[in-house]
Design a protein around this nucleic acid. Sequence first.
RNA 1: GCGGAAGUAGCUCAGUUGGUAGAGCAUUAGCCUUCCAAGCUAAGGGUCGCGAGUCCGAAUCUCGUCUUCCGCUCCA
Length: 512
Amino acid sequence: MTQEELFKALVAHCKEYGFIFPSSEIYDGLAAVYDYGQLGVELKNNIKRYWWEAMTRLNENVVGIDSCIFMHPKVWVASGHVAAFNDPLIDNKDSKKRYRADVLIEDHIAKLQDKAEKEVAKGKKRFGDAFDEAQFRATNPNYLREAEKAEAVHKRYVAAEQSNDLKEMRQIIVDCEIVDPISGTKNWTDVRQFNLMFSTQISNTGDDNDKIYLRPETAQGIFVEYLNVQKTGRMKIPFGIAQIGKAFRNEIVARQFIFRMREFEQMEMEFFVKPGTEMEWFKTWKAKRLQWHENLGMGNENYRFHDHEKLAHYANAATDIEFNFPFGFKELEGVHSRTDFDLGSHQKLSGKKIQYFDPETNESYVPYCVETSIGVDRMVLAVLSHSYNVEQLEGGDSRVVLSIPAPLAPVKVAVLPLLKKDGLPEFAQKVVDEIKYDFNYQYDEKDSIGKRYRRQDAIGTPFCVTVDHDSLNDNCVTIRERDTMKQERVPVGELHDIIDKKVNMRNLLRNL
RNA sequence: GCGGAAGUAGCUCAGUUGGUAGAGCAUUAGCCUUCCAAGCUAAGGGUCGCGAGUCCGAAUCUCGUCUUCCGCUCCA
């Protein structure tokens, strides 16, 4: 199977066994929105628990919060999202390329200004030392002509941008005869506003002033609660705040199953540190986060760091932890050194002092911040795509097995009476009673035992417990392990410990 | 958003020149009995993605539309 076929098979498998369904399927579905089914939600919850416990329990200076999706609109002004993700876009119909309309116009203005400056350069060359630049700029007709052209376009552009007049933007591009650098044609579509953030209104009058956004990242919820948590939790720097929650981004193209969705879930942790120490902590969290991934045992060679060359407006260092997905190495988690950009912006815009008083040095400062940010859905996809295997067995048989790390598996154990008579189901029920308070289990008495094993393999259940006639006499059952298919006969009383040893979350949390 | 391909039962697909929709697997019930799927019997399940049009008659022809996949584009 090629990687592409494998990925398709995985997507089909996810639907067939109740992990992940396309949303609203009975109405033809909704593009790039997926629902988690009965098994998917268990896997997802286990992943979230693994992260939450690693963060908040194993670091005594990291606490969690749960902030809202709705936030004050000014939050997104301070964070830079309103300014940075509100782009007018235009397509060239011939080259099929998309451009930012404002960039096209700005480039054009720059070209015109360039022409004017060339006149100045010419003047310099001609008059040498006698050249009076101010005089030249004020009087030279060639220069003035070019400069006026640039100024005229600039004025129109600023007016259009301020009034958000998309038709005028397009008209400027048409009037200036701006051509697509690739196709060289002027065959443009309309200018459309693209906003990364979804919006709605909080009152029901539809007034534009009541517009609020669905958060495009959970991080800002942490920043605006920084003061509350720091004070009420008596937190001393360095300390962190962790959060798991939904975020929404109106991506132009959402693709690759649950890898890029418009509604998705993040697990973010903001770690507040003393300015100047952020690089140390950046390194620390890079290592800690990689270890968290490696503890899953999905192959250390499947992870790599990708350091950012080009940094975002808020960062002074950034790296991605990439995972080897079926479609190649792609970002799974980001570790960013965000400086004091966020807290600083909120301090400025809100007028509230957001500072930390350091009792050791007696100074106040806006803390710097190191962020770890991982997509829950990407993590689910990483686990599923790595776990999905089609194994060839002796005798030409094959089985589909999800080798999900046992502590993350949706179902931990299946209880299977060999026959559904002779008192075996009744005995099996007693086995269920033995384990049901501690482990998610399935009971199945339908079809042959081999078939039932395959069904459990397909959903990644680490253990199958089989009850046979001997069980009634010796109180022992057969426990069969998913990956090795090895069987062992054990007393019912020992089941709990055998299963627990393998599926307990502490197996993953060690050494973190 | 552009280009290409696809959409018939839960899944994989068949369906002839337009003439009342099929198979295998799966599901449910019963039988059989058995430690690594595919034994027997029966049953349920389909507005043929959706909407128009042509036609006496459309799963089939035409147009539109939605969704999915692939490639571009986008991705602080």
